[in-house]
Design a protein around this nucleic acid. Structure first.
Lengths: 187, 187
DNA sequence: AGCTTTTAGCTAATGCTCTTAGCCATGGAG
DNA sequence: CTCCATGGCTAAGAGCATTAGCTAAAAGCT
């Protein structure tokens, strides 16, 4: 039996891809094993069970999202930065719904959890957007939570098929960016 | 063996309660059966499997949320109505995280799906809030999506433990209501 | 190179899950 | 009082995550 040359990163990557394909809730260890060409129990040599795999997928997703958003806002400020960040974030969630779903409801286990670092990076990118507005010290935390809620909410609702009716979703999203920009400029 | 006198509503109610207690992802048929005092296969006399149970829990949750929000805005308009709706919605999600989680990513199967009706009622309540603002025909759909995204996002993030650090969450929520109100008044 | 040790794969087995099939007693309809 | 639909049951099958224990491949050391 030739070795497959696996490592934890390869298992996590396969799990993340599968989550995007079949939905995070439908992800199973058997599927991951089949995808990487190995029997199911062999996965436990690289990953400590499903819970651990989920956390690692979440960390990967947060890191990728942070890269996407952080890269998108390079060289922009104010409204342009806000729009770039929002579009990059939504695009990431829509392209990787399974990965992103893995990040929901998972709290970092400790201070050295890679998930915490990745989450902090993503938060930092949104914080950078806010620096382009004149926001008082007391409001910055609230504004950050506003942006998170808004974009998280919109992206997950759309990703879950929550917007059924009539109006164009892209148009709504641009409208929403304009709304947030106006509000942030008049604090 | 005396009969338990079950019906579909009782099974769904038990499932919804359990979802709130152990989390929607952790809900199992065995647990529901044990809760209502019956062996697992007996549930299938009232409900067509887990998928069907999930849909029914979602319909129940949407109906309850619609009642809560609809009741809260009675007699209010404008900013008061917005605040009442927002607080009622968030309170519902925080008190019933499992129920609410059941509604995410589930699309109504057909036009006579009870879930569609319940969802429409909830949407109607938010629509009523918007009627207290002077919003052009072209903007009302976008504004509705804004409110949904904002409140859905905030409530699910808080419910999932997404707001870790420092600032007071209640304060952020009130800040967010004020932000939305200001934005809606200056369209 | 040759030997030793670690390790990445495997099979086998346990206990959980949902679900279907088929039986029987309850309880209401005529 | 009888009949029949139905809500409960047990038994069984398929799939899941996980653990234990084995073996061969690779890596490290002399």
């Amino acid at each position: 039996m030739p070795r497959a040359g696996l490592d934890a990163a390869a298992v996590v990557a396969a799990g993340a891809d599968l989550a995007d394909e079949v939905g995070f809730a439908g992800l199973t260890m058997s599927m991951v094993a089949q995808r990487v060409g190995v029997r199911t129990p062999s996965l436990y040599k690289h990953v400590n069970g499903q819970e651990d795999l989920n956390r690692r997928i979440a960390a990967l997703a947060l890191g990728e999202a942070a890269d996407a958003v952080g890269g998108a806002i390079q060289g922009y400020a104010g409204r342009d930065a806000l729009a770039a960040a929002a579009r990059a974030f939504r695009a990431f969630v829509l392209e990787h719904p399974g990965r992103y779903a893995a990040t929901i409801g998972v709290e970092p286990s400790g201070p050295d959890d890679p998930m915490a670092a990745a989450g902090a990076r993503l938060l930092g990118a949104f914080m950078a957007v806010l620096r382009g507005y004149e926001i008082g010290e007391a409001d910055v935390d609230h504004a950050l939570r506003l942006l998170r809620s808004l974009f998280h909410g919109f992206a997950t609702l759309q990703s879950g098929g929550g917007f059924q009716w009539s109006a164009d979703v892209d148009e709504s999203f641009e409208w929403l960016i304009a709304f947030a920009d106006r509000g942030l400029r008049t604090l």
